[in-house]
Amino acid sequence: MSAAELLMWIRGPALQFATVVFVIGVVVRILEILVLGRKQDLAAARGSALAGGLRTIFSRSVPDRGTLQRSTFNVVAGYIFHFGIFLALFFFAPHILFLHDVFGVYWPSLPTQFIDAVTVVTMITLLAVLLHRISHKVMRYLSRSSDYLAWLLTFLPVLTGYLAFHRIGLTPPMLMALHIASVELLMVAFPFTKLMHAFTLVMARYYNGAMAGRKGVNA
């Protein structure tokens, strides 16, 4: 199989397969949680559950002072690589073109040099996060193989994307094939790993906020 044929397979059948696994997996996991439902709360409400839930979705994005002081590295590095991935994923011109092909909407892209710099910072941060996980005694104790798998699945698309953009090491079609394949790997594993937090995070925050809101306290 030539590089061009591999790329066509990766852009075609492999992407279709990854999409099916990703979408079905994510929808099933979300619906499983929602359909299970919660026990009815018979106590009189002292505040708005909806307002508390919605507020908490956003308010939890701001780290409280205690957490920031205790886990400065985790908070700062976490923010950096999440923002980096967000910017590279949604504001790099070829990615927008891909998403336009799927969703039918366009939005302006950021300059490639800026995205390039963001990618480098993201890769360095991800490596630092891994190093921290390995070197920190407690983190290492708490880490399971699934944590390292989630890290690898996140790191590979960033690395292969950087190599593909700069065309380092292999032919451009092969680099592009590897980059898209790494994303497909991420998509297939997504519903079955803690990467699912990208979706469940909102639900969990809303639930915590709604419970507190109903009791009339700030969460």
Binding site: G12, L15, L97, F98, G104
Partner: peptide, 9 residues
């Protein structure tokens, strides 16, 4: 070449 070949939507 970065876009899908099939109808992903």
């Amino acid at each position: 070449i970065s876009t899908p070949t099939g109808d992903i939507s």
